[in-house]
Design a protein around this nucleic acid. Sequence first.
DNA 1: TACAATCCGGAAGCGATCTTCCGCTTCGTC
DNA 2: GACGAAGCGGAAGATCGCTTCCGGATTGTA
Lengths: 194, 194
Amino acid sequence: MSTPALEIQPRRLRADAARNRAKVLDAARAAFAEHGTDAQMEEIARRAGVGVGTVYRHFPTKQALAEALVEERFKRTIAYTTELLEEPDPWLAIVKSFEFCATTQEQNRAWAGVLAGIAGGSGAMQPAEHQLGQLLANTERMLDRARAAGAIRPDLKPADMPPLYCGLAAVVQAGVADWRRYLELLLAGLRAPA
Amino acid sequence: MSTPALEIQPRRLRADAARNRAKVLDAARAAFAEHGTDAQMEEIARRAGVGVGTVYRHFPTKQALAEALVEERFKRTIAYTTELLEEPDPWLAIVKSFEFCATTQEQNRAWAGVLAGIAGGSGAMQPAEHQLGQLLANTERMLDRARAAGAIRPDLKPADMPPLYCGLAAVVQAGVADWRRYLELLLAGLRAPA
DNA sequence: TACAATCCGGAAGCGATCTTCCGCTTCGTC
DNA sequence: GACGAAGCGGAAGATCGCTTCCGGATTGTA
């Protein structure tokens, strides 16, 4: 986020263009947070204080704009799950990963759709292949650590996880205020049997 | 489904009209099952073998048509949960209620949206108030029975349930083929601690 | 300052859907 | 079988939201 992207941006943006691009991304983030995929291009432009034409100058389609935001979220998610591998308590790492998922959904109402695509195997807004692979690898390591510590039921597989995240995101998306209670029940099912 | 609806239909429908109404409902059921809320009126008309005008003669808006289907599902759900109160094994009753939820979602891709509305308190396609009350009452009795039998964790409240159904429906909607595995993990969290 | 490349704004174009409208058809009855 | 009421079909209307287009403004450089 600090230096790269030179392969994608062959030439330097003019100062005003760079400024506007950032404003568009901010506005889009807010609009998607509020309305999910139904956010409208014109509203995004208005929030950014630019014309729709400017939005389209930076992102060729609405889909591309949405994907840029998803990729952003995905990077943060991968970064966070990587951090979690350092968490001393492997069970707590799992708990935190679910909480992160829920708050991400709160910040971007399109997130549940992305997770649904991952869990279900299809989905209109898939992240890049290698990113997805990295996230799944982190998940696997997280489970391995917890299993080794005897914190989770031994038969819990990596493939079990995406649906669990997907369900949680859906509950948050539905507007369940007390999603932590839902999470508590969910986690109880993952614990190692006493 | 066999005799009622006389309060809603003040005058008797002409034979062909009644036939078409049924065809429209069948077609709509199929279309909504496949495409959820995105099902198109013209496709419904085509499937029913009638013109769009005929669809609108029977249901003033797409929303009304969708609501008719939801109400239908809701009646079946209430009927089924009422049956379940007779189930000798209270734990099995709970399991079956979740399975019923999942298969309902498989048969109508708009179901998850309805449950989301119930769980979250808002939602565009709410069922009638008294129907909802009846369903929640059944849920409560179901839990009471299971709690009395020591089959579930004692702190499980009726209000915990809608999000659980909502999450399951979302997972099924996402296209997770092995939703039974998800359900298994979920149920493990509801069991009474050993 | 002058010039050219770059960028901006927002009106207009366009496709997709829901909904209306009305002349024609079918049904039920006398 | 004749008549009026009820129902039907599907083209046209209305709307909505994404996308394009281009004259004019801005930026960076000579």
